[in-house]
């Protein structure tokens, strides 16, 4: 059942207009934390460490932080913000009485979540570049990667939102899923010292693949499995996108 149409951009525009209007509040919230991680961990902790995976710690860390900022931007947008619009503000109800259907509303919010990832990831990438942590022209593909990560994670978050009874349930998602991903996707350290099952589990996570790609692009070296990594991200994103829209439709139109 494919009823997503170009009208999704009208929903995207509504979100963009809101973002632009409250830009001053948005920017700090989105970029403050990843920036702190990069500086505090990269330079602070990094000064006690030798090379990690053949480069200084801050250079190892920066590509992962770019991915994580993209991940968190979409996750936040398509859980808390979408839930707020769906349940509390009734924005979804107001839109679906117009020719914009529920599929377009959900797809528009996912597209917006992915856009937030693009903005966050690109901003962090620009910071890393300004700090001299980028070593290759391939790195210009990083925004595209951030967008793909955003598409994947926005869809996943929307799926979580479609089954969430209230705001509190999102803390399970963040505590039990997002935070472990944050620590075990190779953002902060290589997973070599860990037991095999953790390394295998981590390889199954699309975020691990995104971090591999980001690191390869920014440090100018080959990724372990470039094509497979892109495929994993894109395919899971497409499946989650469809699935979340179907679930959301079931929730809202009975």
């Amino acid at each position: 059942m494919s009823r997503v149409s170009g009208k999704l951009w009208r929903v995207w525009r509504r979100n963009f207009d809101s973002f632009r209007k409250y830009l001053h509040v948005n920017v700090l919230g989105n970029l403050g934390e990843p920036f702190l991680y990069l500086v505090a961990m990269g330079y602070g902790l990094g000064s006690f460490l030798g090379d990690v995976d053949g480069v200084s710690y801050v250079r190892f860390l920066a590509p992962g932080i770019v991915v994580s900022s993209a991940m968190f931007a979409a996750a936040y947008e398509c859980t808390y913000m979408s839930f707020l619009k769906m349940v509390h503000l009734k924005t979804y109800d107001a839109i679906i009485v117009t020719p914009v259907g529920i599929e377009d509303v959900v797809a528009g919010d996912i597209a917006w979540g992915a856009t937030k990832s693009l903005m966050s990831g690109t901003a962090m990438f620009a910071v890393a570049a300004a700090l001299g942590l980028v070593e290759s022209w391939w790195a210009l593909l990083v925004p595209l990667l951030a967008l793909l990560v955003g598409f994947h994670f926005a869809s996943l978050s929307m799926l979580v939102t479609s089954v969430s009874p209230n705001f509190d349930s999102f803390s399970y998602f963040f505590e039990l899923f997002v935070t472990p991903l944050f620590f075990f996707s190779g953002i902060f350290f290589p997973l070599d010292p860990f037991p095999a099952w953790i390394r295998i589990a981590s390889r199954l996570s699309p975020i691990t693949h995104a971090v591999d790609l980001s690191r390869a692009l920014m440090l100018g070296r080959p990724a372990p499995t470039p094509l497979a990594s892109v495929a994993v991200l894109a395919v899971t994103a497409a499946v989650l996108f469809r699935w979340s829209i179907a679930r959301m439709r079931r929730r809202l139109i009975r």
């Binding site: 009208k7 207009d17 409250y22 924005t91 117009t98 020719p99």
Partner: peptide, 21 residues
């Protein structure tokens, strides 16, 4: 009342019109 609380009175009308193209 499901007005869009991110926006002003006029913006609400304009954004709603946009959903209709």
């Amino acid at each position: 009342t499901n007005l869009d609380t991110d926006f002003t009175v006029l913006e609400n009308l304009r954004i709603h019109a946009r959903y209709f193209g």
